[in-house]
Design a protein around this nucleic acid. Structure first.
Length: 854
RNA sequence: GGCGGUGUAGUCCAACGGCAGAGACAAGCGACUUAAAAUCGCUCCAGUGUGGGUUCGAGUCCCACCACCGCUACCA
């Protein structure tokens, strides 16, 4: 639609108010110790997932989440709370560096430009951030503390006795480097040749890099790791106390992937060594007909029979040459090679063959399994491929049918298993584990899918490690030496080898005559692991966060989480949220924080789709640019539309005509207060007067206050807006219009459409009482239940669940009189004639249901 | 394949287990206007993806299936 004339003059006032709010520090949050700090006020910390400032600029998806939190922030301010609502930039990372390499510009330059663009865009939407707290992860004053936190991890270990992190000084063993929470490992890592860097498991999607989609291969490299696996139990257990969507909790639990089972030791014929396998089904031990090792299993070298060496070596080579992607592609067909050696099943002394196969993963469990082809689908497939024996040891509860034919992996009753014959699966497991313990062949065990966090990258645009190497060993820099800034470099391209680009800055590399700096940098996740803490105290040069400030903003009477509300997309459900929880717990254990969890309440906004119902993408050409919507309809209309589209958590398609709808609503609100004079100027409406509201008006007004208040708390913005539309429909045509209605209504609308309300508020203030100061600093109104009461209620009268009539009774009528009135209703007589009444149900204020015999 | 979410008028979406409709979009009619736009008013439209079950009563709870979306993928 092209607008010859705007329905209300938003271009004239939106940017004016944005400027005014900014210059008057209208949304500044006071810290304890500040002169204007109000100790009696409740704190409310409402946080957005800060954006990666990409060159594409702000997306309508950002606007959705940011509007939701802005509504909450503004609402809580009107309720008198001390609201912390900050914004910053997650600005280190691969895309900036790749763009820099492509264009030949330094990433600092492009990053700064993108940040400036994002800030302008956010400010043009009227978000009430406290901009004095703006932070960027690339700022040395910020990453100094990211490095400091790394030193905390480096200087700590997880004490299994206390089940928490402690300073490494409390460790009494002789190899502290083997227990640090930040440690060096030479294990297999995900190496992406195209990006020239290693990646965390979480950054590898279907065998390809999450960024760019390039193939990833596994190779051994010396890397920094963080011991997140020490926290698996607490990361699972502490989810219980959080107000997070169950689906996100489940995602995290599944990602951590706790499995209870047993480790079982199989002896090897002709060797002193034995093979330990992990199984979740020790009750199927009698059904194990072969063992499988991961191709990379260290025992393979030792135990392979001479006549199999060639086949085994060639199989191993073919596996390591395959990228993860190829391994996944070939998943349909099982491959493997026998080692020519037999293992001894401890339960019955049976000799079973040992194989290697790439369907067994080296990083999970013990890297070895006992195969029970009758009761595991993968083992079954493998056994069929290689004609290995299949022996049933579980009888399903239901007879065999199409569904559980071939391979039954459920629970049932143990058969063909002398020591546990006839036992149900849970008891059978239990008894088998007890037996393994007694005989020394194994024990109960728990494993997790979660691996330690690969924490180093071969990139330029990231935080350098505060570590130097001397005589082949690492040592930390002193806290006073931070920040370690990356060197100025013109050529920061990947070297094409495993050598990081920082190796090219030879001066920077040499720390002293004998010491070299660590050349890797931290992954992008590092900066976002703790930014919510820095927002509390962004300029503190002595600590990553001041103690008193931390206790105030992150403290929470008896709840585990500090941040009151955290809103962002589901894409961070496992990675960012798990990493941040981990760091938080370490800092908590070390006494730096007061709560064990960072985020008390989490809400994931749904994805906004294009108007074709598809995901927005440049190639589909269905991307909506927020700047264009703001230009045409204004910031308030964009904000309101995104909140009106549907429930915050749901995905929903964009509709430009829908924007027009809310835009027209805002114009109606404008015209409640303003009218156009003959010269075509907007002036205050003469219809506004000081007068009592009618009962009906008062009822609508208070119903609106109630509904909007409750819906904001529930984040049900779409229904809150619909109630405000009802209010507007009621009052637009009222002549004269009572000013009291606007006094109470405008604050309700102000979190949603702050510019419009601020403008009307200031216009009204010129002539009328009760519109002092800024609308965004006024007070949230309260509703009065008394005004909601009506004199009469209409009941639906049902006979056997079918509506047969209606009944109007005084509100004060009790059950009995309602029931009586229903039977007195002549129009129901035909339905009741000669029938026996069996039951009468009266639902207060709703209906009467008369149940009669048929 | 596994897990999670969602299916309600032409469309987006509302409905503590209680009369399927709050709001909006689109469509149509009317008022205003020389006319149009804008504005205002009115009207139209579904029995809730399918099949069972629980209940006095089911869009809502339970079971099975179907469709779409998201996440995940040999984790023993």
């Amino acid at each position: 639609m092209s607008l010859t004339r705007k329905h209300y003059p938003f271009p004239e006032f939106e940017s004016r108010w944005q400027k005014y709010w900014l210059e008057s520090n209208a949304f500044r949050a006071a810290n304890p110790g500040d002169p204007d700090f109000r100790p009696e006020a409740n704190k409310y910390f409402v946080l957005d997932m800060f954006p990666y400032p990409s060159g594409d600029g702000l997306h309508v998806g950002h606007v959705e989440g940011y509007t939701a939190t802005d509504i909450l922030a503004r609402y809580h301010r009107l309720r008198g709370d001390n609201v912390l609502h900050p914004m910053g930039w997650d600005a280190f990372g691969l895309p900036a560096e790749q763009y820099a390499i492509k264009t030949g510009q330094h990433p600092r330059v492009t990053t700064q430009r993108n940040i400036d663009n994002f800030r302008t865009q956010l400010q043009s939407l009227g978000f009430s951030y406290d901009w004095s707290r703006e932070i960027s992860t690339t700022d040395p004053g910020y990453f100094r503390w990211t490095q400091w936190i790394f030193l905390q991890l480096y200087g700590a270990w997880f004490n299994p006795a206390t089940c928490k992190a402690e300073p490494i000084s409390t460790y009494e063993g002789n190899d502290p480097d083997s227990v640090r929470l930040a440690f060096v490992s030479d294990k297999l890592v995900n190496w992406c040749p195209e990006l020239g860097t290693v990646l965390a498991n979480e950054e590898v999607v279907e065998g390809k890099s999450e960024v760019g989609g390039f193939p990833v291969v596994r190779r051994p490299m010396r890397q920094w790791m963080l011991r997140i696996t020490a926290y698996t139990e607490r990361l699972i257990a502490d989810l219980d106390g959080l107000d997070w969507p169950e689906s996100i909790k489940l995602l995290q639990r599944n990602w951590i992937g706790r499995s209870e089972g047993a480790e079982v030791r199989f002896g090897l014929e002709g060797f002193d060594e034995s093979i330990t396998v992990f199984t979740t089904r020790p009750d199927t031990l009698f059904g194990a007909t072969y063992l499988v090792l991961a191709p990379e299993h260290p025992l393979v070298e030792t135990i392979t029979a001479a006549d199999q060496t060639e086949a085994v070596t060639s199989y191993k080579n073919s596996c390591s040459a395959k990228s993860d992607m190829e391994r996944t592609d070939l998943a349909k067909e099982k491959t493997g090679v026998p080692l020519g050696v037999s293992a001894i099943n401890p339960v019955n002394g049976e000799m079973i063959p040992v194989w290697i196969a790439d369907y067994v993963l080296t990083g999970y469990g013990t890297g070895a399994i006992m195969a029970v082809p009758a009761h595991d689908e993968r083992d079954h497939e493998f056994a069929v491929t290689f004609s290995l024996p299949i022996r049933e040891v579980i009888r399903p509860d239901e007879p065999r049918n199409e569904k559980n034919q071939g391979c039954f992996s459920g629970e049932g009753t143990a058969i063909n298993s002398p020591t546990i014959e006839g036992l149900r699966t849970p008891e059978a497991k239990h008894k088998m584990i007890a037996w393994l313990n007694e005989e020394g062949f194994g024990k109960g065990a728990i494993t997790y899918k979660l691996r330690d966090w690969l924490f180093s990258r071969q990139r330029y645009w990231g935080e350098p490690f505060p570590i130097v190497w001397e005589n082949g060993s690492h040592r930390p820099l002193a806290a006073e030496e931070l920040p370690v800034e990356p060197p100025e470099m013109d050529d920061f391209k990947p070297t094409g080898t495993a050598e990081p680009p920082l190796s090219k800055a030879s001066e920077w590399v040499s720390y002293s005559e004998t010491a070299r700096r660590e050349l890797n940098t931290m992954p992008q996740w590092a900066g976002s692991c703790w930014y919510y803490l820095r927002f509390c105290d962004p300029k503190n040069n002595n600590r990553f966060i001041g103690e008193e400030v931390e206790q105030y903003w992150m403290g929470s009477n008896s709840r585990p989480g500090g941040v009151d509300l955290y809103v962002g997309g589901t894409e961070h459900a496992v990675l960012h949220l798990l990493y941040a929880r981990f760091w938080h717990k370490v800092l908590f254990d070390l006494g730096h924080l007061t709560t064990p969890e960072p985020f008390q309440r989490l809400v994931n906004q749904g994805m906004i789709l294009g108007d074709d119902g598809q995901k927005m993408s440049k190639s589909r050409g269905n991307v909506v640019n927020p700047d264009e919507v703001v230009a045409e309809y204004g910031a308030d209309a964009l904000r309101l539309y995104e909140m009106f589209m549907g429930p915050l958590e749901h995905g929903k398609p964009w509709s430009m005509t829908g924007v027009e709808g809310v835009y027209r609503f805002l114009a109606r609100v404008w015209r409640m207060a303003m009218t156009e004079n003959q010269e075509g100027n907007w002036v205050l409406s003469e219809d506004l007067t000081e007068q009592e509201l009618t009962n009906a008006q008062r009822r609508v007004l208070h119903a609106t206050i109630k509904k909007v208040t409750q819906d904001i708390e529930l984040l049900s913005f779409n229904t809150a807006i619909s109630q405000m539309m009802i209010f507007t429909n009621e009052f637009t045509n009222a002549k004269p219009r009572p000013l009291d209605a606007l006094r109470l209504f405008l604050p309700l609308l102000s979190p949603f459409a702050p510019h419009l309300v601020e403008e009307i508020w200031s216009k009204l203030a010129v002539k009328h009482e009760g519109f002092k100061g800024l609308a965004s600093q006024s007070a949230w109104p309260a509703w009065n239940e008394e005004f909601l009461v009506v004199n009469e209620l209409t009941y639906a009268v049902q006979i056997n669940g079918k509506v047969r009539g209606h009944l109007t009774v005084p509100t004060s009528a009790d059950h009995e009189s309602v029931e009586k009135a229903a039977f007195a209703d002549a129009s129901l007589a035909p339905f009741l004639e000669g029938k026996e009444v069996k039951k009468v149900i009266v639902v207060p204020a709703r209906l009467v249901n008369i149940v009669v015999a048929v």
